[in-house]
Design a protein around this nucleic acid. Sequence first.
DNA 1: AAAAATACTTGCCTAAAGCAAGCATTTTTT
DNA 2: AAAAAATGCTTGCTTTAGGCAAGTATTTTT
Lengths: 142, 142
Amino acid sequence: MAKEVIEKIREFNRFYTSVIGVTNDHILQSNYSLTEVRVMYEAYYSPGITARQLTSILQVDEGYLSRLIAKLVKQKIVLKKQSKEDKRIYALELSEKGKQLFSDLNKRSSEAIATLIEHLTVGERQELVRLQDSIKALLIKK
Amino acid sequence: MAKEVIEKIREFNRFYTSVIGVTNDHILQSNYSLTEVRVMYEAYYSPGITARQLTSILQVDEGYLSRLIAKLVKQKIVLKKQSKEDKRIYALELSEKGKQLFSDLNKRSSEAIATLIEHLTVGERQELVRLQDSIKALLIKK
DNA sequence: AAAAATACTTGCCTAAAGCAAGCATTTTTT
DNA sequence: AAAAAATGCTTGCTTTAGGCAAGTATTTTT
């Protein structure tokens, strides 16, 4: 395999790590860890999701996740409803407060992205999205 | 600003976070933290770099960094030479052992990338690099 | 009805990282 | 030139993220 290709990809990864870092920083100034925000993200877009499913999506220890969820429940950000059919299982979803918080966090994150691309013209922004779509298509392709 | 553009960029960032995660996992199985590897990276490409400079590059606490460097020095991975002109300052560089280790880590990382793109044709790989270069150019452009 | 599996919880522990005070050394001010 | 301020690094203390493994309740399989 061509050495330079891999080297160039790694270089891009380093570069893009810092891009992502800049936007993550904005979230991290919010008293919520990245993992907590990811839990909110999943609970928002997949209401009814279970802790078990989250561990495999987030690749995080189930014990740690259990405590993390407990914390969010205590803060009334996440609602936890025991399933009638299987009492071991709890369906998770964001409360109204949680949705509000999540939307605030999204706003922050969007502002960080906005700053990142503020120097680009409308055409360049569309070009950026197009390039990103192409990369995703290449890397996802099975 | 067009809402969808920002939303699409954020989506790509989430996607690419997982791409980077896959390759970082390979490094993390090596007993060295990401921050330690980043220190090695800087010491390798900028021999003579100081702790002070590293804190601003890596955005990490100087106390933490001080201990981290001490650990790498103890393991004889990093060499620390006190400056003659200013005794407060220490020039850092990788030892031979450190260079060897760093090259091993690089190899692992490269293997992870190789797996990531193994299903791509040579042409597609070049296309991927081209797309990444274009993104970088757009985002770096002042 | 046991036994095994599943979903979650809890106790215990480690590693990563931050904060703030401290110690030399150098630079600036008076 | 002496005092004060700044700089570069270190060290003590603490917090947080996260893992591991044993435990509990419930459900499924044998």
